[in-house]
């Protein structure tokens, strides 16, 4: 009987807290901020640039020739697309360089 433990001071299984001290959950966005700004910028450019350039140039630069202004709007939309492809390619390359540095 001498080896018997004094059980009163110990916690039972039911009383034990599995989780320990409460950890703060990670709620930071998984996407880095510069990517979000980039996408927002492209969205804004896509919405504003073509139609805005049409209305800006139709009576000033092209003297009311709406066909040229419409053509300019279409060209600017494609410029935004090519710009986006270039940015996406560059991002991929910079990611690859970072992973090489880590190794």
């Amino acid at each position: 009987m001498a080896t018997r433990r004094i059980a009163n001071s110990e916690r039972t299984v039911l009383e034990k807290d599995d989780n320990g001290p409460e950890e703060k959950s990670d709620i930071a966005p998984a996407v880095p901020k510069d990517v979000i700004y980039k996408l927002l910028g492209f969205t804004l450019a896509m919405v504003v640039l073509p139609i805005g350039s049409y209305f800006a140039t139709v009576n000033t630069v092209f003297n009311g020739n709406a066909s040229y202004a419409g053509g300019l709007a279409a060209v600017l939309a494609n410029v935004v697309l090519i710009w986006y492809i270039i940015v996406a390619m560059n991002e991929d390359q910079s990611d690859r360089m970072e992973t090489k540095k880590d190794k």
Binding site: L39, S67, G70, A73, A74, V80, Y84, A88, E91
Partner: peptide
């Protein structure tokens, strides 16, 4: 990590809508 490059079809669809918009305005 590939999402950024995969968004290109979405941007191209947006351009199609811009074409229609330009002609409608004209």
């Amino acid at each position: 990590d590939l999402i950024m490059k995969c968004l290109i079809p979405v941007i191209m669809s947006g351009i199609l809508a811009v074409y229609s918009l330009v002609i409608s305005v004209l």
